[in-house]
């Protein structure tokens, strides 16, 4: 059995766990704990080690989705999770501009770990406070070439679209690379 993996990263409460949950064929193996820090009490629990989702591709190929912990103090896990990844998705909460700088920093960190293709997903686009995707591109200082796509992590089709775009980017890079 061959396995490949993609990493889903982003700031605290961006929607990484929900993103994986929407497409995983198994219940996401989550390492959520109750939030202790007062400043981070936006939600009741958070991922402290990783989330783990799985999609069976065919009889002998499985795709694993690893979600990183969003809180900074668990960032020692990031490098471990990024090892051997096919590509990564950076989830950004479109309604919380205060997290954009951190998202940018996480993006740079993962790019440094491995030069694999990546996608930036502007999550929670269904909420009224969501920033416009193009405004987010300026705010996140993303080059026009970087794929920044609207996303609603609770919506399976939306998550599928993000994963497909990442796979297209991987395919494109393979086609451009030398043998």
């Amino acid at each position: 059995m061959q396995t490949v993996k993609m990493v889903v990263t982003g700031p605290f409460s961006a929607g990484k766990t929900q993103f994986i949950r929407s497409v995983s064929e198994i219940d996401v193996v989550s390492t959520e704990r109750k939030i202790s820090a007062e400043a981070e009490k936006i939600k009741a629990t958070t991922t402290v080690a990783m989330d783990f989702g799985r999609i069976s591709i065919d009889d002998d190929l499985v795709l694993f989705l690893f979600g990183t912990p969003g809180q900074k103090r668990f960032d020692f896990m990031w490098e471990i999770l990024s090892e051997g990844m096919l590509g990564f998705v950076v989830i950004v909460d479109s309604t919380r501009p205060e997290t954009f700088r951190e998202a940018r920093s996480i993006l740079e960190t993962f790019r440094a770990y491995a030069p694999t293709p990546y996608i930036v997903a502007a999550n929670k686009q269904d909420l009224p406070d969501a920033w416009d995707v193009e405004d987010m591109r300026y705010a996140l200082r993303l080059d026009e070439k970087v794929k920044l796509l609207p996303c609603v992590a609770r919506d399976k089709e939306s998550v599928k679209n993000i994963l497909l775009e990442l796979l297209y980017a991987i395919l494109e890079e393979l086609e451009q690379s030398k043998d």
């Binding site: 497409v23 999609i55 190929l61 795709l63 599928k160 497909l164 796979l167 395919l171």
Partner: peptide, 15 residues
């Protein structure tokens, strides 16, 4: 490698 990625694409499309 390309074939592997194409298999992933085909499967994700059918989810």
């Amino acid at each position: 490698q390309k074939s592997l990625v194409q298999r992933l694409i085909n499967r994700i499309r059918t989810l």
